[in-house]
Amino acid sequence: MSSVVVSTLVSLDGYVAGPGGDISRLPMDGWFDALNLERLRAAGTLLLGATTYRQMAAYWPAVAADPTVSPAVQLDPSVADLHRETAQRNAELPKVVVSDSLTPADTGPWAGTTTIVRRADARAAVTALRERAGADVLVFGSRTLWGDLLAAGLVDELVLLVGPALLGAGLRAFPDGIPAHLRLRDTSRRPGSDSVLLSYTVATRSS
């Protein structure tokens, strides 16, 4: 069976975005980029909501062609290979997008690797993804999507990079009404970063 792994950056006060969905106030250091690539290497499928998909599809194809267009690479050219590989893996991985608004015309350079699933069919589609043998089903961003999946018992792991920022308002990582029992798998830090990585198993799948 495959595991659905949610990997997200969260502020110390529990927000995954600021007011209006602004993610620029979240502390995205080099460790964040390295962790994302590590997760992509372990993934067999990307599972995304429409907003995150559109953001990624608008950004990463250009980085695959020329990593120097990435602001992070402009600040530190030594991370060019990391960003190039991230862009390539984002492009190559099969992507399942849950959306009632996205159309094939919106998939652009990722048309050949993208499957659109309507919201009414999302839980059944994710159940099918979990039940097949293979690598991780990886969720980046897509808070509305994974919140629904967590409530339905369809998330297996939560990987939270807790950043040293207090946003005060915005999109909460865990809104009311989503119960889940978590087991801590690991905690880690990286020299030079003030973030803390927390990895949890969601105790919903029967053994």
Rank of each mutant, 00 (worst) to 15 (best):
P109Y: 00
A50F: 05
R41C: 10
R84Q: 03
Y15Q: 11
R25T: 09
A58Q: 03
S101L: 10
N36M: 14
S99R: 06
V73L: 07
S24T: 15
P27Y: 12
I116V: 09
D106H: 10
Q74M: 06
G30L: 13
A64K: 13
W31H: 14
P71R: 11
M56Q: 15
Q74K: 15
L26Q: 11
D106S: 04
T45V: 15
L40S: 05
Q88G: 01
P104E: 05
A65V: 05
L75M: 06
T51C: 01
Q55L: 10
Q74P: 03
T45F: 06
P19I: 09
I23G: 01
A43N: 10
G49A: 11
Q74H: 07
V16F: 08
A111Q: 14
A111T: 11
L40W: 09
G49L: 09
P61G: 05
V63D: 02
Q74Y: 07
R84E: 10
Y53M: 08
L102Q: 07
D22I: 06
F32R: 02
L82V: 02
G44D: 03
G30R: 14
A91E: 04
A64W: 00
S78G: 07
P77C: 09
L46W: 09
L40N: 01
A50E: 14
D106L: 07
T52M: 10
V96P: 13
H83M: 12
V96H: 09
S24Y: 12
D33I: 06
S24D: 15
T51Q: 12
H83A: 02
E85S: 09
V16Y: 10
L37Q: 11
P67Y: 01
E92V: 13
V98W: 02
A80K: 02
G49K: 04
T86E: 09
P109K: 02
Y53A: 11
A43F: 01
L82T: 11
A72T: 00
D81F: 00
T113G: 06
P109W: 04
N36L: 10
A43W: 00
S78F: 12
T113Y: 08
P67L: 07
G49P: 05
A34N: 07
V63T: 05
S24H: 14
L12S: 06
W60G: 04
N36G: 15
H83V: 03
V97I: 09
G44C: 13
L93K: 10
A57E: 13
G14Q: 12
A72L: 08
I23R: 15
T103G: 10
V63I: 11
G44R: 03
E85V: 08
D22P: 07
E38D: 15
T103H: 11
M56N: 10
A62Y: 12
P77I: 13
V97A: 03
R89A: 14
G112S: 12
A58F: 04
M28P: 01
R84K: 07
R39W: 13
L40Q: 10
G18V: 11
A105H: 03
P71V: 06
K95D: 10
N36R: 14
Y59E: 06
